[in-house]
Design a protein around this nucleic acid. Structure first.
Lengths: 218, 218
DNA sequence: GTGAGCCTTCAGCAAACCCTCAGGTGATTT
DNA sequence: AAATCACCTGAGGGTTTGCTGAAGGCTCAC
């Protein structure tokens, strides 16, 4: 369930999550959130801390499900420190990659360990979501936060062609105003750090986008 | 549904789409688009971003269907960053091939995966629309964007004779000013890259056009 | 405050690509 | 047989696109 009073944020999140295969309910304020949660008992609630009626933490107390809080970047740290075990938070403005990563992490912790694995693998390239660690051919590689998110997005969509606009939409914050040149820079960084050996995994499709995939035998 | 204030664009698109078997409604501005969409609930809307009354993104928000945006090549890199998941865009001036390819891609993503396959096959020549990969007899071939569009047009119309004018109209941008000589050049490129082995698939019909087809066994 | 790492922009360079053109080839007409 | 026509293809130039090093500004830890 997605709870936010801004329709644009609500739509952005629910569309993105539905596209990834989640069933999504929405609510626009705390009152509605509590009602919907009682009727439908969702697995997880994405919850804006700032709501017009009730405080987000108040809503969390009344519904018994795990929560991913959305909070302004400058919000007071002490409140966040009061998170219940199992909950988590991301700051606005966020990137879709980040929200989805946190959601999966919360669900993994909540439902026993039998959940989806947190380790992605393409050829001899491996990425551990929980540990935030990356290996290429046995060698560990250090990545910056953005590099990590980008590589994660590539690996989740391995074999699929991704346009620069698509990458921008998912990996960068939704309010990012710049142009797609950043994506080129970061692909360049990633190539240097994790794709400097054969077989090359990140391929450029001129005027179309990029793909991460193992080159076919042909 | 096709929404554009320029009648020439509207007619070009709707005629092309009807010919391909789609049912097409049109609207000339945002107001009309919203009304028609509510009454008829189309599967997809091809929507110009620049409309006389409402902004294209505003229209998209009010109608619940997937959207393929039409946008000018220069402006808007940042605005496009606000695309909803599942939507897509093409820049003006476009080619009909490109618009149709994007439409099919959006529809494929939107209605479950059970949609039409994205893999075309003629003899031992194969083309994957999603992965943008082309194979001839097990051997992968790299094509430039225009080469790819041309081959795709040939394969969709396999067995049908295509005149150079027809090819120009579908594969090249609608504002292309040059003559049909380009088509000859690109057919030549294609032959070298994907038709350099028996059986030959691309055949010239002197003063008529070209066909892609497997020669009859006799 | 200072420094390190990080994010973003920019510009110069390199490669790929698109289109034109002209000479050549083979078929068709005169 | 000669002339004509349609087409093929190699070469070349102008343009677009992408890569990468460098620089500036920002944040955060110390």
């Amino acid at each position: 369930m997605v709870v936010d009073d801004e329709p644009s944020i609500r739509d952005l999140l629910s569309a993105s999550l539905r596209f990834s295969g989640f069933e999504v309910l929405t609510a626009a304020d705390g009152q509605e959130a509590v009602e919907v949660a009682e009727r439908a008992s969702p697995d997880l609630v994405v919850l804006d801390v700032m709501l017009p009626d009730l405080d987000g933490f108040e809503v969390a107390k009344r519904i018994g499900t795990p929560v991913l809080f959305l909070t302004a970047r400058d919000a007071t740290e002490d409140k966040i420190a009061g998170l219940r075990v199992g909950d988590d938070y991301v700051t606005k403005p966020f990137s879709l990659e980040e929200v989805q990563a946190r959601i999966r992490a919360v669900l993994r912790r909540t439902r026993g360990e039998g959940g989806p694995v947190s380790r992605l693998k393409v050829a001899d390239l491996e990425l551990d979501e929980d540990a935030r660690e990356v290996w290429r051919g046995g060698r560990q590689v250090r990545l910056s936060p953005t590099e990590f998110k980008l590589l994660h997005y590539f690996m989740v969509n391995a074999g699929r062609v991704l346009s620069k606009a698509q990458i921008l939409d998912h990996v960068w914050n939704y309010d990012f105003g710049g142009d797609a040149g950043v994506v080129e820079s970061y692909v360049s960084y990633l190539r240097r750090k994790v794709d400097d050996v054969e077989p090359r995994l990140i391929h450029t499709l001129r005027s179309v986008g990029y793909v991460l995939r193992e080159p076919p035998a042909g």
